[in-house]
Amino acid sequence: MMLIAGTVPVKGLPLTMAKVRAEGESLVIDSHHIPCTQGTGATISAALAATDYLKLEPPQVLVVGDIGKGKGSREIYEYLIQRVGELSPAVLVLHYCLPDMALMRRLCQSIKGCSQRPLMVADAGSMYAAKAAGLATEFDIFTPDAAELAFLADQGATHPAYINRHLFDTDIARLPRLIVDAYRHRNAAKLLLVKGATDYIVRDGDILATIAEPDVPELEAIGGTGDSVTGLVSAFSYIGLELHEAAIIAAKTNRMAGKFASVTPAAGVRQIIGQFPSVFREYLCHWSGVCHVEGGNYHD
């Protein structure tokens, strides 16, 4: 099972865990309708687009309403702390949650009780908490943007709002230096997918690939385009691709979808995710070797 956990900006939504499906422009989770917008909704939508295309079971999701007060976030942490052992997901994606170092510490401890350790993916507030608590190396994949990479490289920062100014001012040519520092301080997951004008795929400190084409600079302005990359890399890891391959295909898919959609900075992430099936049809076989899908089994 691939489990995606995070908050959504729906006031009053109770803690809910269920398989997800798409209905029109919404996601439906146990009869609750969730918008496909920036945040956990975009990550779930992207992962669902991939599993639908590959005819795999849809992601299981754990969501709760939280508009920043933190109560819902704490419910997610507590639920996972107590249940992750019995759930034993193959892939666990931790997304928008109020960063809480103590709860993240307890969650990582609980994960040690899983019969098989899940592949651990973190982005957004969950990535902030993992880094601030010194637990980054417990994770397999982080998906930071350039400012978040600066946060990972800054040993003293507990949130990207407190990164050192000279790191924030770093131009793109110096991102490799930030990557080195993030790994030197043990603040990086095993694999980093650094999202930006050029995407960097990094494993254990080594830059394995850079992706700069197609060049769609408008993507940076569109809320949720980083979240959709996180959903894609999680789904491609779930089907068993090597992590760096999953990351490369995720980055390429997002860029190509932006190109297909001819996005402007005023576009919504739904327009981009809506292009994923077209991108998969045209490129996935070529990029990944996943060419024929028959009832959940895929073949070269």
């Binding site: 908050t7 959504v8 900006p9 917008t37 920036q38 945040g39 956990t40 909704g41 939280d66 508009i67 920043g68 007060k69 933190g70 819902g72 976030s73 928008y96 949650c97 109020l98 960063p99 982005d123 957004a124 507030g125 969950s126 990535m127 902030y128 943007d145 400012a147 978040e148 946060f151 990207p160 709002a161 990164i163 924030f168 940076e220 302005a221 569109i222 809320g223 949720g224 385009t225 980083g226 900075p265 005023a266 576009a267």
Partner: peptide
């Protein structure tokens, strides 16, 4: 920092926000 806001130069309308990772960010969006 980690946050971006984009607006239409002519009308002054906010067309997008992106970045960030705390639960109020999708709400603010």
């Amino acid at each position: 920092g980690n946050m971006k806001l984009t607006f239409d130069k002519e009308s002054g309308v906010v067309v997008n926000t992106s970045g960030g990772g705390c639960p109020d960010i999708p709400y603010l969006h």
